[in-house]
Amino acid sequence: MATGGRRGAAAAPLLVAVAALLLGAAGHLYPGEVCPGMDIRNNLTRLHELENCSVIEGHLQILLMFKTRPEDFRDLSFPKLIMITDYLLLFRVYGLESLKDLFPNLTVIRGSRLFFNYALVIFEMVHLKELGLYNLMNITRGSVRIEKNNELCYLATIDWSRILDSVEDNYIVLNKDDNEECGDICPGTAKGKTNCPATVINGQFVERCWTHSHCQKVCPTICKSHGCTAEGLCCHSECLGNCSQPDDPTKCVACRNFYLDGRCVETCPPPYYHFQDWRCVNFSFCQDLHHKCKNSRRQGCHQYVIHNNKCIPECPSGYTMNSSNLLCTPCLGPCPKVCHLLEGEKTIDSVTSAQELRGCTVINGSLIINIRGGNNLAAELEANLGLIEEISGYLKIRRSYALVSLSFFRKLRLIRGETLEIGNYSFYALDNQNLRQLWDWSKHNLTITQGKLFFHYNPKLCLSEIHKMEEVSGTKGRQERNDIALKTNGDQASCENELLKFSYIRTSFDKI
């Protein structure tokens, strides 16, 4: 039985969820670079991206490699990797027998973001014989899940209580170790020597080791999670996991709180800001991140802002960003909400898709409305799209047979046209069989910064309504002859009103 693990408890099935942008060198404390989270699957090609990484700022997932063999891993080693800020997950990587050479110096898994409450997941690794993470000293947050690894031993010899604050939620089941077939031998045991430290858990006094050649490092209890030197002297209180010299914040392997210019500090002093819960960055760093993602459509890219001495992905609820200094300031009234469309555009074809934009005031991208039916549609669209004030790209209304009016965009005031449909149009209306009105132009103002209007096959939309939009939106004169079809717009509506004058002759039985 794995020490510190839980057996036999019912657990939810383990679901495996399925960018080499360097964020800056980590400095003297770390020998390499800070790398983003990685999802490495199918083959070993991307694994080489770990070569210079000291910190993975995010998670590391290595999974679904069915053609790899043990010899493929023999020359692979990433000794610079010290810390993973989120979680480490391995799933069905064939041929991998140990992690001792792959990650010989991995010391800390912070667990800032977890995989279903777990910071370390080893699942269905069919050839893994031992973990071998002999320098792993601290899992700051989260638990361990090690399950269905039929060859995995050296679990009962690990004292997880020396690595985690609590072992109650560890789930370590259905491994070879369960069948008591392992016969784990710690260093020196074969020669009758006791080389590794022994600890007591559940009444068992057991030597602690990761492999037959690597003991588990056990520091004096007084050192807590700070770690200790090879001689057993406690590291500085700002260290986490390990250090090369005692009581020196510049000799830590990793930091308990924050890293700044080669030393570990309790908090980031001005003019620095907390970033990702582990390091200090200056304003320029946060500003660069903001600008890199301002026009990016890459998933996970955030326009970072500053709030409460932190550089964070977005302002919290009730705050909006001051564009001059990136500071989050309290909103006066309802907060603006910028919604970034991942692929640059979004099609609204149902109430469900409209709900995804609920509360958005600025759309960074283009909207395509293609709704053919739905219950209580006008009210639903207004509830979900009615706060949109600005669209950076274009607005396209296409084959939306259920629409009679666009009044559900009740606050839309600006279409920038930074991206144009077919390279020309910022407003595009095609084949809307029941569209009769755009907006009530006596109450609604709309500016279209650039781009043209396109109207074709809107049989109940009168040309007068379209011409009014040209005047109000500032697009009059931009359109070419064929942009607004004269014969297919309003051709099934009563669009022309003329005053009919009647004269009559009164007659009676005795007068003409």
Rank of each mutant, 00 (worst) to 15 (best):
D178N: 08
W210Q: 02
N52G: 04
A119K: 00
C335W: 14
H274R: 03
I62Y: 00
Y304M: 09
K251Y: 12
I306E: 10
C219E: 02
I146T: 01
Y30V: 06
H59N: 09
N179R: 14
T329I: 11
Y134W: 13
L136Y: 00
S98Y: 05
R162P: 10
V126T: 07
L29S: 09
I163L: 09
Q299A: 07
W278T: 14
A156T: 05
N42W: 10
E168F: 12
T320D: 09
G111W: 02
N150M: 05
L99E: 00
K251N: 12
V173M: 04
L90S: 02
T140Q: 06
T250I: 09
R298A: 04
D169Y: 03
L289E: 12
S323V: 03
G241F: 01
N105V: 11
I185C: 14
C196P: 01
R145V: 02
T194V: 09
A190G: 13
I56D: 00
E231K: 01
F285D: 14
L44D: 14
L289S: 14
E151G: 09
L81H: 00
A190D: 14
I122H: 01
P220V: 05
C239F: 00
Y319S: 15
A156L: 10
G183T: 13
L99H: 01
G203I: 05
F66Y: 01
I185P: 14
A198E: 14
C335R: 02
K80Q: 12
F115V: 05
C223Q: 00
D39P: 00
C35L: 00
L120H: 00
P79W: 11
C186P: 01
S323L: 10
D39T: 02
N175L: 08
C215S: 02
L90N: 00
V173I: 00
T157A: 09
H214M: 11
L174F: 09
H290W: 14
V55M: 05
I62W: 06
N150F: 04
R145F: 07
C234W: 00
I62S: 00
C252V: 01
C153I: 00
Y259A: 08
I40Q: 02
Q204V: 09
I185R: 07
S324H: 08
L152V: 10
G318E: 06
V108C: 10
K129R: 11
F275W: 12
K148T: 14
